[in-house]
């Protein structure tokens, strides 16, 4: 079972990042008065994204197995997850925080 989990570590990091970013935005917008949440949301998303990318980089450099198939799958999943995390991260640079569409 640990072997199976290691295989999908990349997407697990993506999922954790997604949950943190979405949760932080929703919660901060709900509890902070309008106009004060922007900076904290931007910071939370930024930190979470950097942390996730760093984790994925580390995970990518140490695939944890010498079996070619498992190594390749682990690596490519890490790469795809990193792209997905980056896509999520850039949203906060473009779209205003806490406002209605």
């Amino acid at each position: 079972m640990p072997l199976l989990i290691r295989l999908v570590l990349g997407p697990i990091v993506w999922a954790a990042h997604f949950a943190v970013v979405y949760g932080a935005h929703t919660a901060l917008c709900a509890i902070r008065p309008p106009g004060t949440a922007e900076a904290s949301v931007a910071m939370a998303v930024g930190i979470a994204t950097l942390a996730a990318l760093l984790t994925l980089l580390l995970a990518g450099m140490t695939p944890g197995t010498a079996v070619r198939f498992r190594r390749d799958v682990t690596l490519l999943l890490t790469v795809l997850s990193a792209i997905a995390v980056a896509w999520l991260g850039i949203t906060v640079l473009i779209v205003p925080v806490c406002t209605s569409p």
């Binding site: 935005h25 795809l80 997905a84 999520l88 949203t91 779209v95």
Partner: peptide
């Protein structure tokens, strides 16, 4: 009517799922 940035997160994930 949920915040635009939340929508953006899900839009980004929708792009990610297109790659596979």
């Amino acid at each position: 009517g949920i915040p635009a940035l939340s929508l953006a997160f899900f839009s980004a994930a929708s792009m990610a799922v297109a790659v596979p």
